[in-house]
Design a protein around this nucleic acid. Structure first.
Ligand code: ADP
Length: 394
DNA sequence: AGTCCACAGGAAGGCTTGGTTA
DNA sequence: TAACCAAGCCTTCCTGTGGACT
């Protein structure tokens, strides 16, 4: 027993563990090379280059599936642009904003507030009117004359929640004398932009940049590039890298997933004090990646959401109509001594589950017997069992 | 050929929480 | 202190609709 413990400690202490620089695998880290994205880097650089002459670049719309390097390429080009601008004393401000992060910049107020804060002003989270924050932002932009390049990552969230904001922002240059502002919108969802009014739409997509999915070989190159400086020599075989790449390639060529798989596999290997990352570690990681995601989602679920899930489980059918689910839910809720929510609300809760990949739904018509929606658990990774397990103590 | 079910899902607005400012 | 403010959660009210049935 104590032998084992010593083995673990000495293994860590010797420094000969699996990782050399684990942070290189973190998704926030931007590598110096982006294999298979040379074209996009070059195109984006060309689109943004006019800013170095203080000419306003076109607004750019960047799209492609998740994990295809959109954010990485944009930040990469932005960093280089910043560097050049600084060296030559050109006033360019490259502002990266993720509008998809909840409670950060996902509403009109929060977006303006976020920009104000990046420009050095303090703005409270709430309490003051939105238009006041907007005016403060305008004032900051004007009193710090520059060419502003504003990246709106996951812009589809803003398109959905607050199209007016984008309309305002796309026309902001008419209110600016000393500064100019260009928008780079990034999204996983090409169709998102179509729900905007046509003026905003064409304004935001003056130029477009497409990121196609990576194939398995490309992912392999990316992983190798990233892992070179990351692992101790001899720890990682090509076959292991290939396995990660192949798995991620099946999930719309997602480089983020590939990197996470590799990291989790290596962490598993490290925990077992294995000297190499093995295929079995990858296979475990494939399961864990998904389980962990579902697990954190379910754990923090409010009561009513849990009751809805519980009701679906208790119906014990491969598929259920929303009406059945709701009736069961009302029963479940009253047993627990709570007041039930309306059907309308439960419908929205089900939609949230669908967005999280917990259930799949389908609207059908039963003709004479009206329209309804069919709900079933998503088939991947025995979600149903996971949900069941987490709800036992309810 | 037309009816009409039973629900989907949009719109608007209320209530609550946690904040500001004068 | 009173008067505002943003946003999340939820209800109320409502319009729209695919297709079995007549
Ligand atoms: N060509 C590449 N070379 C190295 N790493 C990459 C490459 N493309 C993507 N990545 C990495 O994959 C992860 C996800 O990429 P990201 O740019 O965030 O995808 P997207 O924004 O398209 O969803 C990041 O950690 C990123 O650094």
């Amino acid at each position: 027993m104590s032998d084992d413990i010593e083995k673990i400690f000495s293994f860590y202490a010797s420094g000969s563990s699996i990782f050399v620089r684990k942070d290189f695998l973190q998704s926030s880290y931007i590598p110096a090379e982006l294999p298979h994205r040379e074209g996009q880097v070059k195109q984006l650089a060309q689109m943004l280059a006019p800013s170095l002459r203080l000419e306003k670049p076109s607004n750019i719309f960047v799209y492609g599936k998740p994990g295809t390097g959109k954010t990485a390429v944009t930040l990469f080009v932005g960093a280089h642009l910043n560097k050049t601008a600084q060296e030559k004393g050109i006033p360019i401000k490259f502002l990266y904003i993720n509008t998809g992060l909840k409670k950060v910049a996902d509403t009109e107020y929060r977006l303006y507030a976020y920009i104000c804060r990046m420009l050095g002003d303090f703005v409270p989270d709430t309490g003051i009117p939105t238009h006041t924050v907007f005016e403060r932002m305008l004032h900051l932009l004007e009193s710090n004359p520059a060419m502003y390049l504003v990246v709106l990552d996951e812009i589809d969230v803003l398109i959905d929640k607050s199209p007016d904001t984008l309309y305002t922002l796309s026309r902001i240059n008419s209110e600016l004398k000393n500064s100019k502002l260009s928008i780079i919108g990034i999204t996983n969802n090409v169709n998102a932009i179509n729900s905007l009014d046509s003026r905003t739409k064409s304004s935001l997509s003056e130029e477009e940049l497409l990121f196609p999915p990576y194939d398995a070989n490309q992912l392999c190159d990316i992983l190798k590039e990233r892992s070179d400086a990351c692992f101790s020599p001899g720890v990682l075989d090509d076959s292991v890298v290939m396995l990660c790449a192949a798995s991620a390639a099946r999930e719309h060529g997602d480089a983020r997933r590939a990197l996470e798989l590799l990291r989790i596999s290596a962490e598993l290997a490290e925990r077992e004090t294995s000297l190499k990352v093995l295929k079995k570690h990858v296979n475990t990681a494939i399961g864990k990646l998904y389980t962990d995601k579902v697990h954190t989602f379910l754990k923090t679920l409010p009561d009513h959401q849990k009751m809805v899930l519980k009701s679906i489980i208790e119906l014990d059918k491969p598929m259920a109509y929303t009406r059945e689910i709701y009736d069961k839910y009302v029963e479940t809720v009253s047993k627990a001594g709570l007041k039930e929510l309306t059907m309308r609300r439960v419908l929205d809760i089900l939609a949230e589950f669908e967005a999280e990949g917990i259930v799949r739904t389908n609207v059908i018509s039963r003709g004479r017997y009206g329209r309804t929606k069919i709900v079933e658990f998503a088939t991947v990774d025995n979600i149903k069992e996971q949900v069941e397990k987490l709800l036992v103590n309810l």
